[in-house]
Nucleic acid binder design. Structure first.
Length: 287
DNA sequence: CTCAGCTCCTGCGGGC
DNA sequence: TGCCCGCAGGAGCTGA
């Protein structure tokens, strides 16, 4: 469940279990996910204290007191499950009282505070790496990322510069993490709808006023989704076991054939395929 | 450089 | 019930 809002929700769910806590033991149940795990992973993690959990784009970064930073990516199907956190208000829940591990629980962190975190990823498109904190920004997966859409460096000027002269569909460029980092298929569709821009429009042929709307729409949809705890498709749960509920606020995504929700619009949501992926939009109000 | 297509992998739901 | 197909929230790599 991995676009920026979901990753941010996962990060927040991990904070109580991981931040400030020691990794008593790391358990690795296969050689790697998308790529092999780094050499000596379990030894390098054992005894390390997590100083800070942060997020860059769709990556979660754990700064350790060993001088290394652990990088995690959830891929398409990754999730984190926390158990064993002290929950005095929940009768029957205690430290070190963990449910059975599940199929596809590939990495498990056993924390000194009694919490257990399981990284589950059926499709194994996820990633986990470890590298000196001083050079983590230069990690090949992070180095080329564009600005954070909710940060100060992002705005219509970023889109204008990146789109200039480009003939590719605007949807494809918004999915390019080098231009703006953190969007995925859902939130690109939702942002384009809010901005009234047709997903197949050549990116370089969008005027300044509409880029302003688009940048604003991107920020708004991401902020609202974070507020809602992300989107939970196919019953995926967040790290704290709760479901996000932004999926109920989708205006076009996965709504093929449904009436457009824009006031006064009588259009019908359509699904097309762009570079192999579904795009949802309203042909009546997106131009 | 730009762009489209393929690829990795498992699981689920729909149609027959 | 079982089988086959398409599809799924990502993104790196290849080749035109």
């Amino acid at each position: 469940m991995p676009e920026l809002p979901e990753v941010e929700t996962v990060r927040r769910g991990l904070v109580p279990a991981m931040e400030g806590a020691v990794i008593a033991r790391a358990e690795v149940r296969r050689e790697g996910l998308r790529w092999p795990f780094p050499a000596g992973l379990t030894e390098r993690l054992e005894g390390a204290r997590v100083r800070h959990l942060r997020r860059r784009s769709k990556y979660i970064l754990a700064d350790l007191d060993t001088g290394e930073t652990m990088l995690m990516h959830l891929g398409m199907s990754g999730r984190m499950t926390v158990s064993g956190l002290a929950a005095p208000h929940v009768p029957g829940r205690f430290h070190n009282d963990h449910p059975a591990l599940e199929k596809h629980d590939h990495v498990i962190w056993h924390m000194g505070n009694g919490a257990r975190i399981a990284f589950n990823d059926p499709r194994r498109f996820g990633a986990l790496d470890l590298r000196a904190s001083t050079v983590i920004d230069a990690h090949p997966l992070l180095a080329a990322l564009g600005p954070e859409p909710l940060g100060n460096a992002f705005g219509p000027q970023v889109l204008a510069a990146a789109f200039r002269g480009r003939r590719a569909p605007v949807k494809a460029l918004l999915l390019d993490q080098r231009i703006v980092a953190g969007l995925g298929n859902i939130y690109v569709c939702e942002a384009l709808f809010r901005a009234g821009i047709h997903p197949a429009r050549a990116a370089g042929r969008i005027g300044a006023a509409r880029l302003e709307r688009l940048a604003q729409a991107i920020r708004a949809v991401l902020a609202e989704a974070i507020e809602a705890g992300g989107s939970s498709l196919r019953d995926y749960r967040q790290a704290d076991g709760n479901l996000g509920y932004f999926q109920h606020n989708f205006r076009v995504y996965d709504r093929e054939g449904a009436p457009c929700v824009a006031p006064g619009c009588h259009g019908t949501v359509r699904r097309i395929v762009q570079s192999g992926r579904s795009t949802y939009y309203c042909p009546a109000c997106q131009r």
